[in-house]
Amino acid sequence: MIKKLLSMLLGMTLAATVLAGCGSAPASEKAQEPAAEAGTEETAKNEETAEGSKSYKIGFLAPTLQTEFFISIDDGLKTECADRGWEYVSVSFDNDSAKAVTNIENMVTGNCNVIIAMVSDSSCDSALADAQAAGVKIMECGVQTEVYDVCLNTDQYQVGVSIGEMAAEWINSQLGGAGKVVVYTTVQNQDMQNRGQGIQDAIAENAKEAEILEVVDIGKDVVGSGTSTTENMLQKYPDLNCIVCYGDAAAVESMEAAKAANVDVENFGIFSCDGTAQAMAGIKAGDPQKGTIMFAPLAPMMAEYAERVLNGETFDEVITAETISITSANIDEYYTE
């Protein structure tokens, strides 16, 4: 009885809160208005007019907020929004399209002016279209579908090519081309598969004498899988001297496993992507980690384009996020201990 009363009380309290929020928000009224005009007051739901300052609310939808890459974007956006006096919320959908749809709807309910959606495919297009109809601006990142006001994208295949080129250059210069390579990829989504393919193609193209011994699906982000897979690969291929990973998470574990196996650090190279602190520390320290790809800071870019789209700019072209190859040659520019 107590529990039922508690849950009904909780439900009614939350209902009152949400409906109060709905009632005061112009979003429900805005839904009736055409969204044809850009950069007008209609898109600024939480506008405050104190001395002309505008306060918006930004929502960030990420596939996961449990990996360093997305957490750093989240933190960066939080800072950017705080600097601009904006509200900020973030959610993850854990690769579940149904949850992505629900989160988009709830961010509309929560009065977001811009939703930065790092979705995986077009399964959320209806929800994003409904959000647009409610006056919310949509920024798509990492994938380009039919529904967006601005799209920031990086060709993941090209990212893979950059990783592969970095590895090929090292193989040619350090190993005289005699590379024995294992590629770690993941089937998390199409992007990572494209990245993995880019790696393989770039190595085949630029280090023709190198041999790709195996392409390993390292699976989901399970802590320890990089370590055990590397131990097994070193066992399977005693002459292995290069590991190229889709991401730093697996790469830094491989680095530790390789060090523990007492590999020849000078002639063993690990290459990856994300530009995490641990990977860069390894490059700086002369560990087996020899290179990583860092994305130009995405959070400031996202915040900048969010501001521009809220001010009425339209973007027909997809905006490409730049990448930077970091090796021992330029590590000092990007990492200090």
Partner: peptide, 16 residues
């Protein structure tokens, strides 16, 4: 042992 092996503390450790 896990932290020693990976030289890192991961919030997602032990999930499986």
């Amino acid at each position: 042992i896990m932290v020693g092996r990976t030289n890192a503390s991961q919030p997602g450790a032990g999930s499986s």
